[in-house]
Structures are given as structure tokens and as C-alpha cells.
Design a protein around this nucleic acid. Sequence first.
DNA 1: CGCAAAGTTTAGCATTGGCTAAACCCTTTG
DNA 2: CAAAGGGTTTAGCCAATGCTAAACTTTGCG
Lengths: 146, 146
Amino acid sequence: MPQRTKKPGASRIRSAAFQRIRADHSSELAEDYVELIADLIDEKGEARGSDVAMRLGVANATVVKTLKRLQDAGLVTQEPYRSIFLTGEGWKMAEDGRKKHKIVEAFLLALGVSEKTARIDSEGIEHHVSDETLRAMARFLARKVM
Amino acid sequence: MPQRTKKPGASRIRSAAFQRIRADHSSELAEDYVELIADLIDEKGEARGSDVAMRLGVANATVVKTLKRLQDAGLVTQEPYRSIFLTGEGWKMAEDGRKKHKIVEAFLLALGVSEKTARIDSEGIEHHVSDETLRAMARFLARKVM
DNA sequence: CGCAAAGTTTAGCATTGGCTAAACCCTTTG
DNA sequence: CAAAGGGTTTAGCCAATGCTAAACTTTGCG
């Protein structure tokens, strides 16, 4: 959680960009998790911790720990030794992420980037595009098509 | 530093994207620091820790700690209570970052995004675009102009 | 049904990147 | 020249995100 510091009135800072990036990083992991969990549920009917671990390329224990935080944040529910479920809020976040992801990836492809690169880069970029940029990408795609 | 783990032969993972993102995050901060230090040196003749702190929107102590790591990594040099210098490697990284940054920002502007958003988003995106995507962006810019 | 294998969780550790408060050094001024 | 004030650093804390190894469930097979 980004701890709120009272910034001294002294010298107003225009570090907005960097502060947003740090904030983005906090939520980035959560978004990746819920998106992945949603995919797993759709693909296989359930999301197991170990599947998440494998796809993310991290250790099982790491997933357990992170899921605990996501549970506290109200994004997932889970019983020990059972598979993972998304809450309403979790689904919403997952859907938002998927939408974003799809636009960014399609955009990169339209730009002439290879499929593999589009897949990898979109994963990294999606968390850092504002709504405005996303709209611009969508506009570009629409123009391309017609 | 990303610790190298020997991934068990069991179940080859295709988590490349996520692993790259985690790796990117390690270097992201370093890039932001050296880029900012380079800017400060060019603008004001020297980079003081407190300027860096102010522009990044973090506490002074945080900068001190991070600079120690960057020094260990061979990117900057510094004496206590003096201003900060970049090593050759540091300059190289800063230049690369600036180049990337410029392309991404110009690209976003060409896409029709507002200046403010372009400035903010490019800061977040620049660390996640591969060379291939960067080339595609440059191509797009070139086409736009002619 | 019981036990072994497979899958999960807990425990404990490390690193990164933040913060505040206190100590420290440098500079400037009286 | 010495002391005050301001800028820097150190100390010590916290949370997030990783890891491995060990403990604990579940499950599935004989």
C-alpha cells in the first residue's frame, strides 16, 4: 500500500509520474494474479495455486503468501488446500485487465510487431497505459480496420 | 539483483513474460535514477541527492540507500556530502533511457494523446518496450512525418 | 482401510524500496 | 573563529515479494 506522506508545502513537487508508477506497481501484481486466475477458471474450470505459480514462474509458497494479501484486499476467496475463487470485485478487475490487455496487444500487432513480442510487451505495458492512451490505441485500431 | 534459480526440468514454464517483467522492475529504478541524474547534471551542472529525492518524490534517505546500490552496481560514483556522478556505464544507461523515452513520448503524442498524459505514460511504458516495439514506434513516427 | 505420493501450507530467511527521527558534517555568518 | 542552521547520512523500522526446506493435507491405490 502506498503510504500517504504529507508532502511539506515546501517546493511543490511535480513527481506525479514517478509516484503514479510506484502506485501502479502495487496494483500490478494483483491485476496479474486475478487476470491469470480468471483465465485458469475459464480454461480449466478451476484455478489451483500451483497452476498460478507455474504460469507466473514463481514458487508455490510465494503464491500462497500473495493470495493471502489478495484475500485481505477482497479480490479472491480461498479455503486451505482448495482452489481459488474470485470475488465480484476480483472478477471486475480481471475483466478490466483483460480488456486493456486485448487492446494493447492488438494495437502492438497492428503496429507491425511480431506475435511473440506483442504478447510479452503487452503484459508489461498494460499496467502503465492511462485510459486516455488506451482510447487512442482503440481509435487507431478502429481507423486501421475501416 | 534477480537471483538465478535453477528451474527444475519438470514442466517447462512459459512464464517468460512475467519473468521479464520482474527483471524489468529491478532495472527500472536504476534507469530512472541515472536518467534523472543525467538530466540534473545537464540542467544544473550537478546532481545533488536532495534534487533527485524531490523529483522522484521520495525521502532523502531512500535516495541515499538506493545510490549505494547503484554505486555497487557500477553506475554512479559519489563521496559523502558531495554531488553525484555517473560512470561510463551510467552515462550509457542514461543515454539509452533518454533515447527510448523520447521515442515513446513522441509516439504517444503522434497517436493523439495529450502532452501531459504522454509525459506520464511514457515514463511508465519506456521500461517495458522491447527493441522490436521501439523500432515499430520509430517506423510509425517516420511514416507520419513524410 | 491405510499408507505413500503428490500437492499445499508454514516457517524462516533475504532483498528491495519506502519512511521518520536522530546524528553528523559543512558552510556561512556574526 | 566558533556556533547556528541547513543539508546529508545513519539507524532502525515496515511491507512486499521472492526463495528453500520442512510440515502438513489429500488423494488415490493396493
